[in-house]
Design a protein around this nucleic acid. Structure first.
Lengths: 205, 205
DNA sequence: TATTATACAAACAAGAATGAATGTAAACTA
DNA sequence: TAGTTTACATTCATTCTTGTTTGTATAATA
């Protein structure tokens, strides 16, 4: 077969990642063979092995494409330089993520794969640690924002910013999980933004 | 080999379920073969196939042993006949579950398997629907309790009991997920009870 | 333009894993 | 107590999957 140019090869690589996402979603990561991915990508396993070491390697590539930009974005929204009031910052950092999920199919699929179509054992166990670590970072950002809100006097009294941050983080973890599982959309997807608003309003003075 | 009495056979069946739980936990459900389970249970695959149709069948048996009693217990705690004030009822229904997780190894393992060692595709997809359904039931119970709290005038004003119930449910979903993932205990396990208390106090007048 | 490295396809070998079939000794039952 | 069923162990045939190897046409390069 004809050799491809570098651009074509990069395209093939991306096709394999896209194919993997689709197949992971419908068959689960474990039950997906490299042959499944190859067929979906309309290449042979040879091509897959050329671009990736193994299935885990593909999984990581797929994840990074979605999560690396996402984390950056969330950090930006919660940054001190942002001009909104801190509670609105928190609210937007959450609702922006939900809006992303609504608009970006790849992100939605990747979330679903990582939450309910993947088993975190062996080579995948480290992924969990990374998730925990990211969660801890975001919780810290929430805490700082709540501290600023407290200083600005817009926060209901009687609660530490640490406790509020943890509560918000747990709320949002739960929301993401239910959002993903609620595939018909009736229970959580359509009202996620309202739930976020209500959650934040509970804290406003 | 010598045939066992009925009691012995039932014991074997339970040994297989226990073995499956242990192996599921360390290898993940998908990567676990019936041979793995058989070895752990110190029987042959013949015995496993005698007691169970296949791996899915074992999975369901394992789940039911933990979840059926749990749901009943939670329902009881949230029942109208319960003498505690409604907010304390909600708090206890949550903290009781956490205490269970702390004390009951089988429950802890089963939760971990179902959350991060299982892919919800094909035969397992229905499990997700059942989970969603149970969650909806519990949220409804929360809502009723919040309504009672509102009537009794112990609730902070300005929020619908529906919104509060959903927020509590999402908080607790998130907490369970993080509790399970926090295997070294430092981030969530040791302070789960306090987080629950803080969550409820946010709602108290 | 001759050479080399690339981007795959195709073929190969070996190891799981599954479900079914068969065997069997002892518990149960009529 | 003879016959039947139970509770498994053992064996078999088949399918999947993986990683590697080999082959090859062509882009890139010197």
């Amino acid at each position: 077969m004809a050799r491809k140019t570098k651009e074509d090869a990069e395209l093939t690589r991306q096709r394999i990642i896209d194919a993997a996402r689709v197949v992971f979603l419908s068959r689960g990561v474990s039950r997906t063979s490299l042959e499944h991915i190859a067929v979906q990508a309309q290449v042979t396993r040879g091509a897959v092995y050329w671009h990736f070491k193994n299935k885990t390697d593909i999984f990581y590539a797929m994840r990074d494409q979605v999560f690396l930009p996402l984390i950056d974005r969330m950090d930006d929204t919660l940054a001190t330089e942002n001009l909104e009031d801190p509670l609105t910052q928190i609210e937007h950092s959450l609702s922006d993520t939900i809006n992303d999920l609504n608009q970006n199919i790849e992100m939605r699929q990747t979330y679903e794969i990582m939450m309910i179509k993947c088993e975190y054992v062996d080579e995948f166990a480290t992924v969990l640690q990374q998730i925990i670590h990211n969660c801890a970072n975001i919780t810290d950002k929430f805490e700082l924002a709540y501290q600023r809100a407290s200083t600005q006097g817009i926060l209901a009294a009687g609660h530490t910013s640490r406790a509020l941050a943890l509560d918000t983080h747990l709320f949002f973890s739960g929301l993401l999980h239910m959002w993903v599982k609620d595939t018909d959309g009736t229970r959580f997807r359509y009202q996620a933004i309202d739930l976020i608003k209500a959650h934040i309003n509970l804290r406003r003075k």
